[in-house]
């Protein structure tokens, strides 16, 4: 599984996150407000993962390792928060 949670509550995305990660990620994100997601080790993410990050308004710790995520998805997520 490429979704995990650290002791301090930070949710970590690693490698390529497939659609199967969507449910566990949703559970972690719903456990409390103000979630922090560290996606610095993330190489890629399914649209289902990206839309969860967007819908939850989680704070992202980046930049992500994957180029597409870093160059395009990250800015799009930030742009959606204004």
């Amino acid at each position: 599984m490429s979704v995990s949670q650290l002791e301090d509550g930070t949710i970590v995305l690693e490698g390529v996150c497939p659609i199967e990660d969507a449910e566990p990620l949703l559970r972690l994100l719903s456990s409390g407000p103000g979630a922090v997601v560290d996606w610095r080790e993330c190489d890629g993410a399914h649209t289902a993962i990206v839309q969860l990050l967007m819908a939850s308004g989680a704070r992202l710790q980046g930049p992500p390792r994957g180029r597409f995520l870093d160059r395009f998805v990250g800015p799009a997520l930030r742009g959606s928060q204004t």
């Binding site: 949703l26 719903s30 993410a45 839309q51 967007m54 597409f68 395009f72 800015p75 997520l77 959606s80």
Partner: peptide, 30 residues
């Protein structure tokens, strides 16, 4: 998004919710 990633010469991307986001409790991730 994987399909869009394959678009050549990509300059900029915007993501918008199709409708207002539901609460996370009611969110269907699929």
């Amino acid at each position: 998004l994987a399909l869009v990633e394959g678009v050549p010469g990509l300059l900029g991307l915007r993501l918008t919710p199709s409708e207002a986001w539901p609460d996370l409790d009611l969110f269907d991730p699929f």
